[in-house]
Design a protein around this nucleic acid. Sequence first.
DNA 1: GCCGTTTTCGGCCCGACTGTTTTCAGTCG
Length: 603
Amino acid sequence: MRVRAKGSPGRRPLARSPSRKAAATPAAVTLHNEDVAAAFDEMADLLAIEGENAFRIRAYRRAAQTIRGLSRELAAMQGTEAFAELPGIGADLAGKIGELLQTGHCQALERQRRRIPSAVRDLLGLPGLGPVRVRALFKAGKVRNIDDLARALAGNRLDGLKGFGSGIRARLNAALAERAKQSQRRVPLFVAAQYAKPLREFLQALPGVDRVEVAGSYRRGRDTVGDLDVLLCASARIDLGTALKRYPDLERLTASGETKASGTLRNGLQVDFRVLKPQSFGSALHYFTGSRDHNIHIRRRAQEHGYKLSEYGLFKGNRRIAGKTEEGLFAALGLDWIPPELREDRGEVEAAAAHALPRLIEVTDLRGDLHVHTRASDGSNSLQEMAAAARGRGLSYVAITDHAEHVGVTHGLDAERLAQQIDEIDELNEGCADFTVLKGAEVDILEDGSLALPDAVLRRLDIVIVAVHTQFALSADKQTARILRALERPCVSVLAHPFGRLLGERPPCALDFERVLEAARQRPCYLEINAQPARLDLDDVHAKAAHDHGVRISIASDAHSTDQLDVIQYGVRQARRAWLTRDDVLNARPLGQLRELLGRTRR
DNA sequence: GCCGTTTTCGGCCCGACTGTTTTCAGTCG
């Protein structure tokens, strides 16, 4: 199912500082796709709160979704005509994209913001609050933000307000309490990358800078990133502060010294900069990549060898033993180089000492993608376009897995339409020797564990993906029983996005994962790492648990458009964090082996 | 606001669930 953004609290889409407002055309600010998408989402939210035409609102949301799925930057495209060729973007929205890119602003959005303060949108992120109740709060209750809501609830000022019975009020109180507990907001890796890549390029081009790396959890490929740790290698002194003031994505420079600076990007992400000499760069890269627990383990090992380890190098007394490169540092400690994704102190140091680190899977190891959608359900491209795009990316197969009919929103296939699609795929495969389209479906697991399509229909498919799309809040017992019952069915190949989480929006469902793993192992059936940036589900920890339990993994893009096929790289990052090798991943197998393995999932 | 076995404007996704009601509106996916 598509992941719909319901508000996007915490994100500040556009430059709104006075200096930028006054900026002349063309904009001093280059907007990224995420900025434009966030502007359209904001517009959609504000229109919804106003009670605007639902289809107009949907048009903005659809455009935002299209933009988020692009693998190329809008700013690099050839103007409004090219924008209007994108699905769901017509003349009007293409013009607004152009306006945003040119000026950094959208007048229609500015007008909307004058009618409804943008902080009102944050209310949409709370459970039970949709546009109608938010409008009621704003108009009748004078609630303009989440703090106002908390005060109104505390002062019993919502009692008697239509639509705010005791049930809703209790839910809101619980949600606010939970919110207060949450620490600093982290952004998905995919979003962080949109800011980190251009920042790195900007710094790399500065005179005197030899090398730039973004370290921290970003380099380790964690699903979310709390801040960016940027390391610059420079042999001579550089004036970092002055250079950073010219960087348009940087909203504030909070500290600026000779070797250290800090600031905040326009999307709210904190960035810490460190300037290092070449002889220390490797040890600094290691130190700032972390994780903290990994570093503690490595420092302890250094001590055991009679060394002292810091970001400046590995020392014996005052003599530097290593520090120029990470490889040299690890080698001096008797260790193989450890890929950043493994540096969580989950056994990687011992494995490196025993020269037993796995050769982690890479994007280029993948032979196919086993979960993509077409226009037949909720995708944007045709079967032919998805197949051609997958082939163009060097894959040798792709499984078309449109939704079965149960999920209303996704315009799912019934048995008849699925049969039509099967015929279409057969026809497509006939004229093609070096690429194969596999017949599949993503079938809903209903609340009682039954599937949304009958076995007789599923038997005609090469691959059947099952997934939970509703009722995420069941107890662990019920949710587990539901999934186990689905896995009993004769034609189940893959359990997709097993926990149903959406980063920052929906927590993982309660599940007795051990029992699911055991059922998957015995059956056998595969578990998916869904690479959609907001899902990354299985996460690294559960994917490793699956691996340790002998359950194999499918890494899938869940692409809803040709552009989205590229997000599979984020699934691969999670697989690497789970210690997976090529052999552990179903879709790293050549077609013949894949068919054989899928055949074993049949009963 | 987009789209079109299109040419000018009507159709656009809809069922399940929840909470608030007393037959339904709003939320969610």
